[in-house]
Amino acid sequence: MIPPIRLRPMMLSDLDYVQTVETGAHNQPFITSWERAQHEGAVRFPDFRQFVIETGPGCERSGLVILQGCRNAQKSVEFKRIVLQPKGLGRVCVRLLKQLAFRDLHAHRFWLDVKKLNVRALTLYASEGFVEEGRLRESVRAGDGYDTLIVMSMLDREYDARVALGQEAPA
């Protein structure tokens, strides 16, 4: 059973935890981590929303989420990053983030890019209604080589259709 999950706004006091999770051996191959100064800037910049994922009755830190473009005039919100520790919370977190993007931020488009080698995330995003838009071939460093980023998105009308079909929680 998945414990209750909540998103708490990230604070500067969380940055040691954030850096530890991002640079963890199980996460590093799948994300492009930021330096501390980047996180500090994003905490202060209103176009970003950074959250610490907390689980269970003790509100234990279980990961982080970054959204970008939250004040974007085009209503295009980027799902910049999710890092989970432990694994297994992805689906419930993605559903919570879709609610946040479409219901609270009134996004028209909710989009992300994901490394091609991250098959688990690609499968999850596709099963949650994200549609592949294209590929940025060999656009990020990965070990001794490069990896391709796959761009995926969901539009507000697609989200609304999923709600109508019972695939998303109603408002």
Rank of each mutant, 00 (worst) to 15 (best):
Q68T: 09
V52Y: 01
H39S: 04
V18E: 06
P46I: 09
V92H: 08
Q68F: 00
P57E: 11
Q28N: 01
V65E: 08
A42Y: 10
Q28Y: 06
Q28W: 00
R81L: 14
L67D: 05
T23V: 08
H106Y: 01
G88L: 09
A73K: 06
G56T: 11
C59K: 14
S76C: 14
D16T: 13
L12H: 08
K98N: 04
D47A: 05
G69N: 07
L117C: 10
R91M: 07
H26G: 04
P57G: 04
L96V: 01
R91F: 01
G69Y: 07
V94D: 02
P46K: 06
M11Q: 15
L84H: 04
A42V: 05
Q38G: 06
G24D: 15
P86L: 10
S62G: 11
Q28T: 14
L89D: 05
T55W: 02
G88R: 04
S13N: 12
T23L: 14
Q68V: 03
I82M: 15
L97H: 06
Q99K: 13
R81T: 06
S76R: 15
D47W: 03
L89W: 02
E35S: 04
R103Y: 06
L12K: 11
I31H: 08
L105N: 11
T55G: 04
A73P: 13
V94K: 01
F102I: 07
P29Y: 06
H26T: 13
Q68G: 10
Y17H: 04
M11R: 14
S76K: 12
A73N: 05
R109G: 03
P29L: 07
E35R: 12
E54D: 06
V83P: 00
S13D: 13
F102K: 04
H106Q: 13
R71S: 09
S33Y: 12
L105Q: 08
N118L: 13
Q99A: 13
G24H: 15
N27D: 04
Q85F: 03
G41V: 00
G58S: 14
V92R: 10
Q19H: 10
I31T: 13
G88F: 06
P86F: 09
Q85T: 13
S33G: 05
G69A: 12
G90F: 08
R61G: 02
S13L: 07
S13F: 01
G69F: 11
P29E: 05
F110H: 06
A107M: 03
E22V: 00
F79K: 05
T23H: 12
G24E: 12
L100Q: 13
K115Y: 12
V52G: 00
I31Y: 09
R109F: 00
P86C: 09
R49M: 12
I66F: 00
G58N: 14
P57M: 02
K115V: 01
Q50A: 06
Y17L: 07
G90M: 08
V114C: 12
A107D: 05
V65D: 02
D104L: 04
A25E: 15
E78T: 03
E60T: 05
